[in-house]
Simulated assay, not measured.
Amino acid sequence: MKMKIWASLFAALALVVPRVALAEDPCRTVTFEGVPFTVCAATASDDVRVWLRDDNGRLIGTPGRLQALMAPGERLVFAMNGGMYAPDRSPVGLYVEKGREDHPIVTGAGEGNFGMLPNGVFCVGDRLRVIESRRFAAERPACRYATQSGPMLVIDGALHPRFIPDSDSTYIRNGVGVSPDGETAWFVISDRPVNFHRLARFFRDELGARDALYLDGSISRLMVPAQGRSDFGWPMGPIVGMVARD
């Protein structure tokens, strides 16, 4: 119950933040079945990254701090929580940054949403991919950046088999889905509490994603500097986002 109260509070705070969209802003609001979702699109040629620690080894924790760490000539286009993490905010599954694997992939079932198989990996390589974890472990595709989370929302066009259409487990939730050709990734956060089934259907039926991955819920937050949006929330583990060069 406390988590739902916090989720509702974060959503309310996000709504009062003034938003002024710029021409290059890739984030837009899409309403699906009466629920607004914010969608930030990136292409395979964009600079999509995941982050965890700064150059001194300290956890970054927040999109605001990440924005302050941008190199000269770079700016943060958007950022959101990028996968599940342990109490010390370290990744619970595969984590790859700048081609280096900092945590191995986990393929076994477990507790919580992460362990609700199938789970999956978001991989930034020559293409943008969401891959079921056991398939990823078998194929080992090259990723400059990768983050594992779960459950999968959409697997080859099908919804996760354990999702319940009328489930009352609703939270602010976020995830990432990819186009069939791997040229586009959609980073999505619900602007109202939703269940897994509705979030998955949004990716499949509204965006056309054949593969999509849940990143988290209740703690989900988004920062879009061009809109003046910076959702309130606690420090997090992995962060995923896009960088542009001025």
Rank of each mutant, 00 (worst) to 15 (best):
Y145H: 12
S230N: 06
N195E: 02
V124N: 03
V154K: 07
S230R: 04
A42W: 07
V50P: 04
V77T: 09
V96E: 03
A137C: 06
N113T: 02
P161M: 11
R127G: 11
D181R: 15
L76P: 10
A71V: 02
S90Q: 12
A244D: 14
P180Y: 09
R229C: 00
C123Q: 03
L76V: 08
A109E: 11
M1V: 11
L15Y: 15
V176S: 09
S179A: 14
A14V: 09
Y214G: 02
L199H: 02
G177C: 11
V240L: 12
P36D: 13
S169Y: 08
T107K: 04
R140H: 02
W234N: 10
I105D: 02
R144I: 07
R89W: 09
T62Q: 14
L213D: 04
N56C: 15
S220Y: 07
L207W: 00
D156N: 13
E183A: 14
A86M: 08
V96T: 05
A7C: 04
L215N: 10
A226Q: 08
V243P: 10
R129K: 13
G241A: 10
S8D: 11
A79M: 11
K4L: 02
P165N: 11
D55G: 15
P165S: 08
A14W: 04
R229P: 01
W6K: 05
I5D: 05
M116G: 00
A41L: 07
D54R: 14
S149I: 09
W234K: 12
G125A: 00
H197E: 06
R198C: 04
D231M: 09
A109D: 05
L222K: 03
